[in-house]
Design a protein around this nucleic acid. Structure first.
Lengths: 159, 159
DNA sequence: TCCGTCATGTAAATGGTTACATGATTCG
DNA sequence: CGAATCATGTAACCATTTACATGACGGA
């Protein structure tokens, strides 16, 4: 894939759980090439350079994945707002929760569409279990948010 | 509160959804004081400086909370590992999911304890709705993760 | 021809953590 | 007395985003 395609690919697949910017992708691609972890060929279509992971790269990838440390410290803006909800009032909080709920609803349909796509794909049978469970995770979290919203919304009295 | 107490307080309350390091807290406390958004008094107990938010600070806080933009791009290590699960094998993935599940189980009991604490607290009735729903969110997410883990674990065949 | 997409990159700023240094106080 | 905790701060480092600059190619 080209650097561009990598970016597009991330957005389209695990975009909900991970992200990388071009400012990140291109420099590391250069480093990876220098380290022999990927090789680059001029794309058949002429423009761009297609990168392919090498065996050494695959080994490195495995190590990297296994050794992945703790995720970065949490930064949940919705929860921070809710925690200081008294400053903002119940009305505002209810609206904010409704907004988050609507977003989760959208995600839910998006994940369902993704799941159908993955299930229909041929030639990637070995991957399906992994991708499906990734998508199922997103689905589960979105559904849980919706349920939570419905549960707590009534507890906010009127102003 | 002193800077130290602020840090401890964050850890103990919304620690699961937000975090700040000392390297962040002390410098901004200084800036806030200079801007008149907090005032500082020598603590009664002698050591440390207790900070109190001013009215101007409260106004600023409200604006800040309302204007909070999108959360930082996602970085879910578990999901990244799962996405590349084929590289790591079903055995490894199942173990990783079990680990996450166990952690969620711990969180669940932790949140329950927190909820009981909050409910028992007197003098903060106005806050309870907000804190309770914050805790309920954590509970809901942890529970959803457990349910998800139980759902997907059997789909991973043996090596 | 011109617009949108494909494609590559860089520079600066940012936001934040980590590690370290320092010392007072309390409690066993 | 010594250890743990309370308490404050700084410097270095870091990963990352943002904004920008550039240009080729395909199709309307």
């Amino acid at each position: 894939m080209t650097g561009y395609e990598i970016h597009q690919g991330i957005e389209a697949s695990i975009g909900h759980f991970w992200s990388e910017s071009y400012g990140q992708i291109y420099p590391v691609l250069k480093d990876l090439e220098a380290a022999g972890l990927v090789t680059a060929d001029a794309a058949a279509s002429g423009r761009g350079r297609k990168f392919t992971i090498t065996e050494a790269g695959r080994v490195e990838l495995r190590q990297l994945l296994v050794g992945l440390g703790d995720p970065p410290p949490p930064r949940n803006t919705l929860l921070l707002q809710l925690f200081f909800g008294r400053e903002l009032g119940p009305e505002w909080c209810r609206a904010r929760i409704a907004e988050a709920r609507a977003q989760a609803e959208e995600q839910l349909t998006h994940f369902d569409a993704l799941a159908a796509e993955v299930a229909a794909e041929v030639g990637y049978e070995e991957q399906q279990v992994y991708w499906s469970s990734t998508i199922a995770f997103g689905r589960a979290m979105a559904a849980a948010l919706i349920a939570w919203a419905d549960e707590v919304t009534p507890t906010f009295g009127v102003d």
